[in-house]
């Protein structure tokens, strides 16, 4: 996406990265470091969703399932398998991506509203498994008694206890994940996804195997959502079934739309606004849920193109 090289094109990204890298230095003035980690993690999840929603044009309303699978994968690994944060992230990602790969063939033939409905419904399976299988997952009380472990690189050990250290791990994972997504979108594969979004029938006539590409895009998208989920579990040292619930999927969609789903970084901005707003509202009033609902309604009625869409910056995917 940053391929024409002019200063004006690079400037927003450079400023964005400076803001993210320096975040622990200034965030304590207004909030706390974990809030920054939450923004980046949920931003990654929203960007992952947007890979499918904004760049492939397929409406998924069930991404919380894969986010939650990533979270449970990571949590269960640390609780039962091995005290390794790296392994936890890998397992979480693997579990979420595998589930998406398997469910993919059942849904890729569907389109539009139907696709959205089926993804929501499938997401609920994992919610009920997490809820019911309480001997393994802790059920409604959530999975506890585990915590993120120091990462041993061989020559050095990184202690992740402090929020700042963990924030930088999150940022590192975020940077790698977004770099891969940007690379994929700029590849011929990514261009074929845009072609599907713009005109599916035409893409089909050009010889693009549409359903296969949607399946790949779905798997990639859910895979990165589970990366975000694994990081979210590590952030809280806790997972509960609400991570998997469909209302969380709705939150991801609203983040993408709020920030601008036609742009690459939009969902991150949407996540920042949403997370900060929710954090603020839930500390002020017990009726934050209706206020969040009101945000949904207002966004649809007045900002359907999102913040970056409103600014009119025409970012090429």
């Amino acid at each position: 996406m940053l391929n024409n090289g002019s200063l004006t094109r690079y400037a927003p990204s450079v400023i964005g990265w400076i803001v993210l890298v320096s975040l622990p230095e200034w965030i304590n003035v207004v909030a706390y470091t974990d809030l920054g980690s939450r923004v980046v993690i949920l931003g990654l999840a929203a960007m992952a969703l947007n890979f499918l929603l904004g760049h492939t044009g397929v409406l998924s309303f069930g991404h919380a399932a894969y986010f939650g699978l990533g979270a449970y994968g990571a949590g269960l690994t640390l609780r039962y398998l091995a005290p390794s944060t790296g392994l936890a992230i890998l397992v979480g990602t693997g579990v979420g991506m595998m589930a998406a790969m398997l469910i993919g063939p059942l849904i890729i033939r569907l389109r539009g509203v139907y696709f959205a409905m089926v993804t929501i419904a499938f997401g609920q399976i994992f919610y009920f498994i997490a809820f019911r299988w309480s001997t393994l997952t802790g059920g409604d009380d959530g999975l506890t008694n585990w915590s993120r472990q120091p990462i041993n690189l061989g020559f050095a050990t990184i202690d992740l206890k402090s929020p700042v250290a963990f924030y930088y791990l999150v940022l590192f994972v975020f940077a790698v994940a977004t770099a891969i997504m940007a690379k994929l979108l700029n590849s011929p594969f990514g261009r074929s996804l845009l072609a599907i979004r713009e005109n599916e029938r035409r893409a089909l006539f050009l010889g693009i195997p549409v359903n296969l590409r949607i399946w790949l895009s779905w798997t990639v998208s859910c895979g990165f959502a589970s990366v975000a989920g694994a990081m979210y579990a590590l952030l809280n040292n806790f997972v509960d079934p609400r991570t998997l619930h469909w209302s969380q999927s709705g939150a991801f969609v609203i983040m993408a739309v709020l920030g601008g789903m036609r742009s690459f970084w939009g969902p991150l901005i949407g996540a920042a606004i949403y997370v900060v707003l929710q954090d603020y509202l839930s500390s002020r009033t017990s009726n934050w849920m209706s206020l969040v609902g009101l945000v949904f309604v207002l966004v649809v009625l007045f900002f359907p193109r999102g913040v970056l869409g409103m600014l009119g910056r025409r970012t090429q995917a």
């Binding site: 929603l53 409406l59 309303f61 539009g112 509203v113 959205a116 209302s247 709705g250 969609v253 609203i254 739309v257 849920m289 209706s290 969040v292 609902g293 009101l294 945000v295 949904f296 309604v297 966004v299 649809v300 009625l301 359907p304």
Partner: peptide, 15 residues
């Protein structure tokens, strides 16, 4: 886009 009706009614459900 059906996306918007979903989000709108989603928000309404919360409210």
């Amino acid at each position: 886009d059906p996306l918007y009706s979903l989000l709108l009614t989603f928000g309404l459900a919360f409210i």
